[in-house]
Design a protein around this nucleic acid. Structure first.
Lengths: 342, 342
DNA sequence: TTGTAAGCGTTATCAC
DNA sequence: GTGATAACGCTTACAA
């Protein structure tokens, strides 16, 4: 029963027998070993083709003491973001033997660390990619390290060593967008901040304040609100900022969802956007262009970040040098109709 | 070098040595074999605990000739849908040894079939879950079958044998929603269809027409538009339907994105929603409640479908009987402010 | 109830 | 250049 013309997948033994060589030689072909006679290689490739042989990744994983999985850990910052990232990763690993394993987690759960640990222990992925906000947590990064799982953290700022993170330049791009609001003549500019504990919220605020500072503009408390990146908190912020005697003529919202909330409050108050109020968001979520009016916003280069994250995790398999990979990837300010001169 | 106090993960041998039993006995504990002396079991569990042993899934996969991966194949019908489905699947498999591998594909690509095939051959998942619209393609289902990969198809109608599919009841729920529009007094009701070739588009149309039929109402061509499930096509549909001399007083849109487009055309035309126009969508995408006014829509039970799909794929591992699992899961009509009496 | 031997499909070592 | 042979960590016969 050494091997039969089994109806299941052919193995390396079948190929070896078919080509009249040893299995090690076949293995050399699979792994692209250079020390091989061209004739032998061709004969074996022929046999592989004929038999439709595909190496068993489990067996390779066992023998190589590593596997062909990269993990994506996230707590859904935004569905489109996650999916675009996945697509970026996939476009990078498509031709490799790697597959992408996803693990949504709950950042507020008590078992978060335990959950991640047992996942990593069970699957032992070759590496893990962390999306914000959990990418910002050093304890999770340390957990990966302790378990011997490489990782790459994705964030709004440089969170780790260059070959362990990919960052967007939130601060600069928000500063630039705010400068543009100012150059449109706006002087009373409101700000809706993201939640405490989110690095992105901090970075975006810093960029906003830098632009205001440079222009010598103040940010009075009445023009300032703090949300949690959700629609409802944007509604609350809108109520606070837009019902004043002298409301701001422009508002920067730290993400699109909150901008949508604020925008709808403006509609309810019959405030004409953009004639009376300019609004800018962040994320360029698909709905940004579907809002009324279409929202000016900042597009995160999340697809490209997926590509780079995958390459940083698997440089040796994707054929690239870690050193040549960028750590910061530029965001883009997308101007739409929600923004106008005062 | 049989085994050292290696700094890497302890193996079954380490546990066996530590507990003073054979590895087979440890294996019995891992696999929950009933024929084991309680004392032995406890001793081994103790050793596992002390050493922090976690069985290597690759090795198990090899020995068992199967692996612990379920695949999710999709062509992003809608980011939130995919993510909610993933979460459903995950909540079902969380306590098992299985992991979820995702594979976004491009349904219009020439290499679609080739791409899926090479993915399945490479990873050899235990099973695959297919999300619409690719779940509707019989050729893909047959490909899975040919490769010996079980599958479960998710769709808007029953697409396959009961233990190979999970369906929502699009037709009935759309019929019900349309009846509700009619009972609000609407007689001129427009319809924005989804694209040809999508089963969901067909089902939703059938439900809509059934309700109209039952009420003896016509659907003249001028109240009918066909879109591609994208925002822009909703805009086009809005232009067609709402600029007529006698526009419809209500419109059913086959998904939320198209409803958003139509809604924004209405805003541009200064049509008051819902006073002059009621709009209903489908999906309950996160933005549905963020539109202005918040959109009445139909919520797909996609999280639950994820749970059921996983259970149908892995009944023996998740401890459930395929027979007791539903094939159709009911959608829910969510009424919000975009809908009012005529 | 437990242990022994063989094998899952691949790669590494080290001869030839 | 190529091929025995022994791993890799676990499971399934089959014995004891």
């Amino acid at each position: 029963m050494k091997r039969g013309a089994s109806k299941s997948q052919p193995t390396i033994n079948d190929v070896a027998a078919h080509a009249g060589v040893s299995k090690k030689t076949v293995s050399r072909v699979i792994n692209g070993s250079p020390l091989l006679a061209d004739k032998t290689r061709q004969k074996i490739e022929q046999a592989i083709e004929t038999l439709g042989f595909v190496p068993n990744p489990q067996a390779r994983a066992l023998a190589l003491r590593r596997n062909f999985l990269v993990a994506l850990l996230h707590d859904n910052p935004n569905a489109q973001t996650v999916l675009n990232f996945e697509k970026g990763v996939l476009s990078a690993i498509k031709t490799s033997d790697f597959a992408l394993v996803v693990r949504p987690v709950e950042r507020d759960s008590d078992e978060l660390m335990q959950d991640i640990q047992s996942f990593l222990e069970r699957q032992r992925p070759w590496g893990a990619m962390l999306l914000p906000p959990i990418s910002e947590r050093d304890d999770i990064a340390r957990l990966c390290e302790r378990l011997g799982v490489r990782y790459v953290r994705v964030g709004s700022a440089i969170l780790d060593l260059p070959d362990r993170c990919v960052a967007s330049n939130d601060q600069q791009v928000v500063e630039q967008a705010t400068r543009q609001l100012i150059s449109l003549g706006h002087r009373r500019i409101g700000f809706v901040r993201g939640p405490r504990g989110f690095r992105s919220a901090h970075e975006r605020e810093a960029g906003f304040l830098a632009a205001l500072d440079a222009a010598g503009l103040p940010l009075p408390n009445k023009y300032r609100a703090e949300g949690n990146y959700r629609y409802e908190s944007g509604v609350d912020a809108g109520r606070k900022l837009l019902t004043q005697k002298q409301p701001p003529t422009a508002v920067f919202c730290s993400n699109d969802e909150m901008a949508a909330g604020l925008l709808n409050v403006a509609h309810g108050l019959k405030i004409d956007v953009p004639a009376q109020l300019s609004v800018v968001g962040f994320d360029d979520s698909p709905t940004a262009q579907h809002m009324w009016p279409p929202l000016s916003t900042i597009r995160w280069p999340i697809f490209d970040m997926g590509i780079v994250a995958a390459r940083k995790l698997l440089p040796e398999f994707l054929g690239c040098q870690t050193g040549s990979l960028p750590t910061t990837i530029e965001s883009m300010f997308v101007v739409r109709e929600s923004m106008a001169p005062i």
